[in-house]
């Protein structure tokens, strides 16, 4: 990756975690109403604007230097897109996957067209433990009428460092925290329609959430639903008017297929006249993380 790319990616990514050093984690416990929707921060003299969309939870960061302008869109699912416009040069785009943002556990991958081009897994990758001298310029002036002119010229003699730039954004940290909270909340309350293509051994899970009642209706009609926990999966079956059934008895079923991702699940069950609980219909109430064998 070119130096400029690295610098700007570096700059933008670091925004995700820098605030962990200055913010008390308890203070940013995802109180969405407390978030500011706009903020400005400075990095090595460069101004960066943050806009937080309270409705979507997305954050946009924009910054501009003499030769480049950069923008990052951070979405609540922990992914981000970076676009860099370089004056007189090719524009660049990167995708980020943010797995962890804690100060002690940083795990961010940068992709360029699907290729992993940079990984950050150490706080020091982002902020170096280095102290820099603040420029000092000194020279002697002779006491003459030229003093005025020289002094005026001298004021233009100031140069500014323009090395690695990065940004701080409390909003970023808060946004990610809010996203985690949203996932946690969804994990407790919502179901997702699923499509189980048995012949191809593929399970599709719709990203749009549905309520417990809707999930029960789907199961009743021999559809499939996904939820986060076994208890939720069983609850949806109970709401559909059936009892949860698994060939494993007290734990959910899982069909091991080499090379495929599979889910634990419960079926609908009905007690027969002989008093034995038997599988009824073809519905699956899937739950938990996918498993591979």
């Amino acid at each position: 990756m070119k130096s400029l790319k690295k610098i700007l990616c570096f700059m933008l990514i670091s925004a995700l975690m820098i605030n962990t050093t200055v913010a008390n984690a308890e203070e940013v416990s995802s109180e969405t109403e407390n978030l500011q929707d706009h903020d400005t921060v400075y990095v090595n003299g460069v101004e960066f604007d943050f806009d937080y969309d309270v409705e979507t939870g997305n954050v946009i960061v924009q910054g501009e230097t003499d030769g480049s302008s950069a923008e990052m869109l951070l979405e609540t699912d922990g992914t981000a897109e970076i676009s860099i416009n370089n004056v007189g040069q090719e524009d660049e785009e990167y995708n980020l996957e943010i797995h962890d943002l804690d100060k002690n556990n940083i795990d961010v991958d940068v992709y360029d067209g699907g290729d992993l081009v940079e990984s950050y897994d150490d706080y020091n990758d982002i902020i170096e433990d280095v102290y820099e001298e603040q420029e000092a310029i000194t020279w002697t002036l002779v006491i003459t009428a030229a003093l005025i002119i020289t002094a005026v010229c001298a004021t233009a003699y100031i140069t500014y460092e323009s090395d690695v730039m990065y940004i701080m954004a409390s909003q970023f940290y808060k946004s990610v925290t809010a996203a985690k909270e949203a996932v946690k909340k969804a994990a407790k309350n919502w179901y997702y329609p699923a499509y189980d293509n048995t012949s191809k051994n593929i399970v599709y899970i719709c990203p749009s959430k549905i309520s417990l009642t809707s999930a029960a209706k789907l199961l009743k009609a021999n559809g499939n639903v996904y939820s986060f926990t076994s208890a939720m999966a069983k609850k949806a079956i109970n709401y559909s008017g059936y009892a949860p059934y698994s060939s494993n008895g007290s734990t959910g079923e899982v069909h091991k297929i080499k090379g495929k991702l599979v889910f634990y699940h419960w079926h609908k069950g009905k007690t027969s006249s002989s008093g034995v609980l038997k599988k009824s219909g073809s519905a699956h109430s899937l739950y938990g993380a996918p498993i591979s064998y």
Binding site: Q134, E135, I137, T138, W139, T140, L141, I143
Partner: peptide
């Protein structure tokens, strides 16, 4: 952050370091 020390000769300094 531009400083002139009012001595003879004048000295000009620049930067927050000072």
């Amino acid at each position: 952050s531009k400083l002139i020390v009012w001595s003879t000769p004048f000295r000009f300094y620049s930067g927050n370091s000072y």
